[in-house]
Simulated assay, not measured.
Amino acid sequence: MKIIRYSIDENWHYGILRSGGDIERLKRSPLDGLQVAGYIDRLASVRVLSPFYRPRVFGLGYNYRAHSQEVGKNTPTLPVLFMKPSTTVIGHEEGIVYPSDGENIHFEGELTVIIGKEARNVSESDALDHVFGYTCGNDVSDRILQRRESEFGCLLVGKGYDTFAPIGPVVETELDPSNLHLITRVNGEVRQNGNTADLVYGVPALIAYLSKYMTLLPGDHIMTGTPAGVGPIKPGDTIEVEIEGIGVLRNKVITQAGATP
């Protein structure tokens, strides 16, 4: 089942996206149940929004061996975690704002997990019971700031600009995350071609690990890491992250308001 958040007539709603483009509107957040409201909207007539408004976002570094190799890092012996501010999150077809002082901004296509049920001290065998669904994500990163921060053992602003976490377009609730094909394109050219079977730490392991130390809440996002092939983007570029069974997340890179193109 594909869940979508969208706006129409200056109001926003959740809905179930049916094949053919019909959206069956829901009464409330899908995290509170899937009661339908009795209205049908057409996908062609709405604006798609990020699946949830300003969620907590957990990120993973070096969670594909090939990506670790391309950046000269060893395979991690525990999940390498960071957080992205909730204000980084944007939706399908929204603009990724290129910082006015940006020099080396990269895309990172990723499978993103949406938590559906509170999780604390969850075992790997029970972890997927706490998942609401899965969507596409792009962990946009300022490499220069990221490296400067990493020298001192921290990571925030290099991942934390507003608009640096495109998420969407839909949440697929019925999916096996262990073997999904992921492709990232820049201006139509394939740059990443990976599979979640190659994750160092799969979705159950990540949920179990995180929930050992903190309570995961409904609506939390876990961006599971990026395959090899990351690279720079610039204003005017269009980035597409496509994941098997979910769809295509598309965003254009735009200049910051007031910046010189």
Rank of each mutant, 00 (worst) to 15 (best):
T224K: 04
N11K: 14
I233T: 04
V157C: 04
V71T: 14
T196E: 07
T88F: 03
T255D: 12
R42E: 00
E10S: 14
G158V: 02
E93Q: 12
N63W: 04
V89I: 08
S7Y: 05
S178L: 05
G137E: 01
L26G: 02
N63K: 03
V241W: 02
K212C: 11
G61S: 08
T87Q: 02
A257S: 10
G236M: 06
N104Q: 09
V122F: 03
V80E: 13
G72N: 07
Y62Q: 10
V241K: 01
L182R: 00
A259R: 06
R120A: 04
V248I: 15
P235S: 07
I239V: 15
E151N: 02
T224A: 07
G202A: 09
T77S: 12
M214L: 15
Y134T: 01
R143G: 02
S125Q: 10
M1C: 05
L216E: 06
S178I: 06
D126W: 03
R28L: 12
F164T: 01
D9R: 07
P85V: 01
V186W: 00
T260E: 11
D220S: 13
R56Y: 11
L60R: 00
D198K: 15
G194A: 08
I115A: 00
I207T: 09
G247L: 11
V48I: 15
R28D: 15
I254Q: 13
D126T: 12
K212I: 06
E10L: 09
G247N: 08
I243V: 14
M223P: 00
L49I: 02
A165E: 04
Y134Q: 01
G95K: 14
D101A: 12
N251Y: 10
Y53F: 15
T77R: 06
H67R: 02
L26R: 04
K2Q: 14
V122G: 01
P227G: 11
L180T: 01
P177Y: 03
V203F: 11
N11I: 09
G160I: 11
Q69N: 10
P177K: 00
S141V: 14
H106K: 05
I207E: 13
L199K: 07
V46C: 05
F52R: 00
V80Q: 06
E151A: 13
L78A: 13
L34I: 06
T255C: 11
L216R: 14
L78Y: 14
P235Y: 10
K73Y: 12
V97G: 00
A127Q: 01
D22Y: 08
N121K: 13
T77I: 12
G236C: 06
Y209W: 14
P79W: 04
L17K: 04
P55R: 04
L60K: 00
T215E: 12
H92E: 05
T163C: 03
D220G: 13
V113Y: 00
L155N: 08
Q35I: 15
R54N: 04
P85Y: 01
Y201M: 09
L81G: 01
L175I: 14
G247D: 09
L210H: 09
G33F: 10
R185Q: 13
Y98Q: 05
G229T: 11
E174N: 07
G95Q: 10
A259W: 10
G236K: 10
